[in-house]
Amino acid sequence: MKTDDLIEALSLDVTPGVGVRPRLALAAGIGAAVALVLVVLWLGFRPDYPQAFGKPMFWMKAAYAALFALAGFWCVERLSRPAGSGRRGLTLALAVFGLVGAISLWRWMGAEPDARMPLLMGHSWRVCPRNILTLALPMLALTLIVVRNLAPTRLALAGAAAGLFSGGVAALIYGLHCPESTMPFVTVWYSLGMIAPAAIGAALGPWVLRWR
C-alpha cells in the first residue's frame, strides 16, 4: 500500500477513542472488585468489621494505601504515553513513605524494648505482603493489558508503575481483612506488599508491554 493511500484511509477514521484515564480507572474498578471478592470468599473480613470504621488506625492504613494507589496512578498514567515521566508519582510515593516511615520509627523508638517486636511484627507479618500481592495480581494483569494498548516507551518503568497502582488498590481492600493496628507494621509489611507487584510489573514490562 502506498503511504499516501494509507494516510487517506486513516483520515477517514477519526472518531475520538477512549482516553488514558478512563481506561486505567476501569482496570482499577474491576481489579478492586475482584480483590473484594477474594477478601469475602477467601480471607474474610476483620473480626471487628463494622466497628472498625470508627477506628482512626483503620483510616490511617486506608489513607496510606490510597496515597500509594494515587502515586501509582500518576506514574502509570504518564508512563503509558510516549516520552512520559513518572517523576511526579514517584515523588508522592517517596514523600508518603518518608513521612509515615519517620512517624513509625519515632513510635518504635519510643516503645518499651519488650513491646518493639510485637509493634513491628503484629500477628500476620508472615502473610501480609503475600496476601496484598495476591489481591493485586488480577488488577495487575488487567492494567498491563490496558497499558499495552496505550503507548509506553519505557516498558520496565511502566510495568513497575502498573504494579504500584495495583498494589495500592489491593492494600486498600486488604484493610477490610487485616486487623493490624500499628504504624511500624504498616510501614514495613504493607509497603512490601505494594512493592512486590511493582517488582513483578517491572520484570514483566519489557516482555508483555511491547506493542506494534
Binding site: 503511504t3 504515553r81 510516549p82 516520552a83 503507548a151 506493542w211 506494534r212
Partner: peptide, 27 residues
C-alpha cells in the same frame, strides 16, 4: 507506514499539555 499507523491508533496517548515533537519523536 507502521509508525503512522501507531500514531493513528494511539493518538489518545498524546497529552496537549506536553510538547508534541517529543511525543512524536518518542514514537
Amino acid at each position: 507506514q507502521e509508525t503512522l499507523l501507531a500514531v493513528h491508533r494511539r493518538r489518545m496517548t498524546y497529552d496537549p499539555a506536553q510538547p508534541f515533537t517529543a511525543w512524536a519523536h518518542a514514537v
